[in-house]
Write a protein that binds this DNA or RNA. Structure first.
Lengths: 235, 235
DNA sequence: CAAGATTAAACTGTCGACAATCGACGATTA
DNA sequence: TAATCGTCGATTGTCGACAGTTTAATCTTG
């Protein structure tokens, strides 16, 4: 069977997928702090506000639960997850494990195109370093690390990174500021890129371990300084 | 309205936590091969067969999608995921990454109680080695590895392992038999436990890397031997 | 006035229904 | 004859409703 009508290269039009939209909106609301940690997510309320029924909201909430942004107490509803210090530790610990691996894989797939992509991202980081938009700066930082996972070439690795990043984003509103000078952070990434190009697994691992470990220590310090909402959302 | 889609032979269920039950039942149906890879999962059919409405079934399907057991084609429904050879590779690659890390963490938390638990599990593996129940043998193997993740003490690490194992379980019906003598596999785990007790990170990593790598190579060989359903579940 | 009991409101879990959409099959045309 | 179009049944996406449970608000009582 031959191809009868040749494709003309049109972009598929936006699906009116409500579940996906609700998921994105809720995620943004949590990141932006409109939904504070521990807050109850009332299905009917969200549904009314968005002009949809509860069914899509419930399905979206289940997704966000699986993703770690919400917790579900049966018969009582969904609540915005409260990240404890131990959660932060777990996430950063996994990040190190995962990103070290991604780095090694990525270095094997390193092409000029990939190198340029990373290089350009570092440029973007330098550009946004001057602007007073911490959320944006953190986001550009994530983008760089995400690229490494993309280059590693494993869908599951990438999804894992996205999940972890998504959980960490919750803390942006909490922390509110970067833990170091943005330019300095960008420079750190230059060094990281250099090591990736060189391609020695041990060195890459050590470097990424230190890189993320540094962030871990700083964020951990900040989190422990905070009023540190003591309860665990249980009862 | 007649029954259009043929029943899959699912059992009835209780009346609380429907979503959880449907999730478990569908998972089992996939593992046991009642729902073959590529098969369409008709919401109404499943719902009718289980005696519930479509709402819980949809939510369960969404969970299984996030978990990688199902894929969703918008407006066309859910289908049982088809694992390609590259998927197997990704999963085992991640398993190595994750379980090496878990092993190192676990060795730090190693207590007599933990040691005994692992030891007993190896005994169980030896016991079931004689029985002609390959699914059971594989399950006991997973249990041992899961214990290591439990001992590691990170909820996220454990969940990650469960997700990966869940995806791999899909292949049990596909592979159908163990890739090696069960007793020999059990012995391998004894060596693994020994290394864990000793507590040298590098040795642990190397050992687990080799241990899982061996399974990877064997399973990979089996998968590539199969008719290897070439298409991607489209149409 | 405080603590427990009681009642009312709100919310979740689940269901059945309806319109929009998809895939299959047969009709149509060159 | 083969490719395209039109039609129809099956299935999804979404909705509004109802029962049971949880939460709060109010009342009772020592």
């Amino acid at each position: 069977m031959r191809l009868i009508t040749p494709p003309v290269g049109l972009t598929a039009l936006a699906d009116t997928d409500l579940v996906g939209q609700v998921t994105r909106i809720l995620t943004q609301a949590i990141i932006k702090g409109q939904l504070l940690p521990g807050a109850k997510v009332v299905e009917a309320g969200i549904a009314r506000e968005l002009g949809v029924s509860r069914a899509p909201v419930r399905e979206a909430a289940r997704l966000l639960e699986q993703q770690g942004l919400l917790v579900s107490h049966p018969r009582r509803g969904f609540f915005v997850r409260k990240l404890e210090a131990t959660d932060i530790d777990e996430i950063y610990d996994l990040r190190i494990c995962v990103e070290c691996h991604a780095g090694v894989l990525a270095s094997k797939n390193m092409t000029p195109a990939n190198r340029d992509m990373l290089r350009r991202q570092i440029d973007v980081m330098h550009e946004t370093a001057g602007i007073d938009d911490h959320a944006r700066q953190i986001e550009e930082d994530y983008k760089f690390h995400r690229m490494i996972c993309e280059i590693a070439g494993s869908k599951r690795l990438l999804r894992l990174f996205d999940d972890l990043a998504s959980e960490l984003r919750m803390t942006i509103g909490l922390i509110g500021r970067l833990y170091d000078d943005p330019h300095r952070i960008a420079q750190t990434h230059e060094a990281l890129l250099e090591v990736l190009e060189q391609g020695h697994p041990d060195i890459i691992t050590a470097r990424i371990d230190y890189h993320i470990g540094a962030a871990w220590r700083e964020v951990g310090k900040l989190v422990r300084e905070l009023p540190s909402s003591t309860n665990g959302a249980a009862t």
